[in-house]
Each structure stands twice: as C-alpha cells, then as structure tokens.
C-alpha cells in the first residue's frame, strides 16, 4: 500500500454521518410508543387537512347545506348536521385544515420571534441581553391570553372587521399575529439558555478570530446548534397555538366563514347545543381538538426527551 492516502471525501463522510445520526434518531424515536402514537394521529389529520375535498367534498355553507337543522347522526349524515343543516363530518374535516393552518402560522411567528430574540439576546449579551430579557420576563408575567383578547378587537377595529389582506380574512391574520405576539417569551428563554452554552464552546471563539461577523456566527454556528431545541419547542408550541386558537375562536374572535374547530364549538354554544343534548354538534370538533393537541404534546415530549441536551440521557 502506498504511503499517500487518497484525499478523504469530506463531503461524503459528513453525509454518511448525517444519515447515521438520522437513523440513530429514528431508532430512538421508534422506541417511544407515545411519540409514535402521536405521530400517527398527526399524520391522519395532516392528510385530512391537505385534501378535505377528496374526503367530504367542498365546504358546505348555509346555502349549500345538505340537510336540515340539527339532524342526529344517520347514514346520510354520519355525524349529524349543525344548526344550519350542514353536514358535521364535512365541517369537521374542513375544520382540520383551518385549525392546523392557523396553528402552523401562529407557531411560525412564535418560534421566529422566540428564536431571534433568544439567539440575539444570548449571543450579544450585555445591555441588549438585559433589555430583551426584561421584555421577555414582562411577557412571561403578563396575562397574555387576556392581552390577546384585548389586542384582537383593537387591531380589527383599526384595519376593519371585513378587511382582507392578500386575499386572506383579516380576522384570521389578526388571530395568528396576536397568538404569535403574546407567546414567544418562553421559547426565547429556552433558546437563550442554549445559546449561552453553545457560545461557551470553543469554536465560536475560533470563528470569531477568523474574522466572521456576529451575524455570520449566529447563523452558521449558533443556529445549527440550537436547531434541535427549536424543533422540539416548535412542536410543543404548535399544541399551545392550537389551544389558543380554539379558545379565541370559541369566545367569538374567529371568522364564521372559516369554521375552525373552535369556531364550530362557538356556533354550537351559541345555539345552545349542550342544553339541547345535541352531542353530535360538539363531540366531533371537540374530539379533534383534544386529539391534535394531545398528539402534538406527545410528539413534542418525545422529541424533547431525545434531543434536549438537558433531558436526554436522563432515562
């Protein structure tokens, strides 16, 4: 064998490492029964949300309602009808799309805000950190749900109830923004803590010495190292976002023309479905809400246990 070894295929090596890590992660995840169950539930709902028309046809409105008001479940209406005679199965499946979309957007805003504030705060330190963390503390203490309830109508008053922004109902956008604005604080806290510990590690210093700017370091060195945490946190935030969205819609801040599950339950409450004993108006959306939040929580916990450097290895 010659002394000169072939140049190491760094790129290939790194790729192989990544595949191995992914496989290792997959194996560990597969062992978490709760996580797998949660994932399965989510998959079902994602499929429903992606193709509601395929399963139950177009969204029924008051004018296209296919039944009469408050029919109990039957063969024609498997889950009965609502107060306006719309098929509950149709409404619930379409609700998946709306609830999940709002949840997703709100989560993205929350995580984006939380991650940026957390990373900047942790990395820059000093006065910036001080100010940002005061703000974070404030938002942690503040009754954010009440703030959301307060903010939503004010914003709606300003932009106008029926305004549309880029073709989307302002009401929905306001809900998304309000959830995002009021729930980023805990994410920022977690990300900041992780950023601090990453910063401690050598390579940041080395990168700084080489002459890269702080922005570059944050993007190229800190971000990859907090990604795990962000992913796990995103999933848990998703659960919280859906919870908040459902609640805001239930108290009447939703858009009646975009029936999310919370909106459906709001309508059911409005016509007094519980006292009428019209359980089929309530059970389908309520079950979906609980299943989705539960599923996100299960997946989030499993991811957190596997990926969070603090909790990993505690088992």
């Amino acid at each position: 064998m010659s002394a000169a070894t072939a140049p190491v295929d760094l790129r290939g090596e790194r790729w192989r490492l990544r595949v191995r890590n992914a496989r290792d992660f997959g194996r560990r995840y597969a062992r978490r029964t709760d996580g797998v169950v949660g994932l399965a539930i989510l998959l079902v709902f994602v499929v429903l949300a992606a193709l509601p028309n395929v399963f139950v046809g177009a969204l029924e409105t008051a004018t296209t309602a296919s039944g009469t008001a408050l029919e109990p479940p039957s063969l024609t209406h498997l889950l009965g009808t609502d107060g306006l005679g719309r098929d509950m199965l149709n409404q619930t499946v379409h609700g998946a799309r709306i609830s999940l979309t709002i949840g997703l957007l709100a989560t993205l805003i929350t995580i984006l805000l939380g991650a940026v504030i957390g990373i900047v705060s942790g990395f820059r330190g000093g006065r910036i950190d001080n100010v940002l963390m005061r703000l974070t503390d404030f938002f942690l203490i503040l009754p954010t749900f009440v703030l959301a309830v307060l903010l939503a109508p004010i914003i709606l008053d300003i932009v106008g109830d029926d305004a549309e922004i880029a073709g989307i109902k302002a009401k929905l956008i306001v809900i998304v923004v309000v959830i995002g604005l009021t729930s980023w604080a805990s994410t920022a806290r977690i990300i900041r803590a992780q950023t601090l510990s990453v910063k401690e590690r050598m390579f940041v210093d080395r990168a700084r010495v080489i002459g890269s700017g702080p922005g570059h370091i944050m993007r190229r060195h800190i971000l990859p190292n907090v990604t795990n945490l962000i992913v796990a946190n995103t999933v848990l935030t998703f659960a919280a976002a859906i919870f908040t969205e459902t609640t805001l819609a239930f108290i009447g801040l939703g858009d009646p023309f975009a029936p999310s599950w919370g909106q459906l339950l709001n309508a059911a409450q409005a016509i007094g479905a519980p006292s009428l004993g019209a359980w089929w108006y309530i059970v389908p959306p309520a079950t979906c809400v609980v299943l989705v939040i539960l599923a996100f929580t299960l997946v989030g916990n499993a991811l957190d246990d596997i990926m969070n450097p603090k909790t990993a290895g505690r088992r």
């Binding site: 239930f250 519980p274 006292s275 609980v290």
Partner: peptide
C-alpha cells in the same frame, strides 16, 4: 393528565352539560 391537559375548559364543560344536565338532569345547565 395528558388528555385533560389537552382539553380547553369548554371541551370539558360541554360534555358535562350534555351528560349531567341535559341528559341526567342532575344539575342545572347554566
């Protein structure tokens, strides 16, 4: 606990009304 944790109050309350107030009539509805 996890299931309860995933339930907003109204999701817990509405079935309670259906069962114990509207159904069994043990308690008033509101």
């Amino acid at each position: 606990s996890l299931i309860l944790y995933s339930m907003p109050y109204f999701v817990i309350g509405m079935p309670l009304i259906i069962i114990f107030a509207a159904g069994l009539g043990w308690f008033p509805t509101s």
